[in-house]
């Protein structure tokens, strides 16, 4: 997994006034937990640009007054009106302890169903996984090439070494749906085709196999 370095300074006093002053100075209030003790610190808001405003997930190397920690971003809070980052939670990770994190889904290939006029629907942008830090992937890649119209890939179909998927196995990640145009064309095509075409049309449906997953 890619990583980002963030340099911060410990907060001197934990008070509302201090928070206001830090935010006025363009800093973001942060907390790091999951280790021996919680660490309250602040860091320049600009440093978080590549961490927050991106679809990718990173591990974070925090340098707080000379002491280093490895963590993941657990939560980010935004101002209701200005949408500035106002607070970030970090979770310290240890090499021997499982981490629960949301990983983006990357769809590759061109689905057969889309070529036939269907529409690709991605229901989930991220999937929740649990894994040791060494096994954390950058993304979950799904090859959608064998997907025909009406087919879908569910969480239960996903497999990756060292990774446990925590979402419900029945949840659809990506699928190919029938569009209005395809529905309209189907009755017309069925009327034009001879009666003998009916068994021939049934054969491909029988061959329909489960899509290939990674």
């Amino acid at each position: 997994m890619k990583s980002i370095n963030i340099t911060g300074t410990l907060r001197k006093e934990i008070s509302k006034q201090e928070v206001k002053n830090l935010r006025k100075a363009g800093k973001v209030i942060c907390v790091l937990y999951g280790g021996e003790q919680n660490v309250h610190f602040s860091a320049e808001a600009l440093q978080f640009r590549n961490l927050v405003y991106t679809p990718h997930v990173h591990t974070v190397h925090l340098d707080i007054d000379g002491k280093t920690y490895t963590a993941i971003m657990q939560d980010a809070q935004f101002h209701p009106i200005h949408d500035n980052i106002i607070h970030i939670d970090f979770l310290e990770i240890k090499p021997d302890k499982n981490v629960t994190i949301q990983i983006p889904v990357k769809v590759t290939g061109a689905a057969e169903g889309v070529k036939a006029g269907g529409r690709l629907i991605q229901k989930m942008r991220k999937v929740q996984i649990s894994a040791l830090p060494a096994h954390l992937p950058d993304n979950i890649e799904i090859d959608i090439t064998p997907l025909k119209i009406g087919d879908s890939v569910r969480v239960g179909d996903l497999k990756k070494e060292g990774v446990t998927f925590l979402d419900s196995p029945n949840n659809i990640v990506v699928g190919v749906r029938v569009t209005r145009q395809v529905v309209e064309e189907t009755p017309a095509a069925a009327a034009a085709a001879p009666a003998a075409a009916a068994p021939a049309a049934a054969a491909p449906a029988a061959e329909k196999k489960a899509p290939e997953k990674k």
Binding site: V52, Y53, T54, P55, A76, F78, D83, P104, R125
Partner: peptide
Amino acid sequence: FIIRPDYV
């Protein structure tokens, strides 16, 4: 008008 932070 607002956009999701991780929008691509």
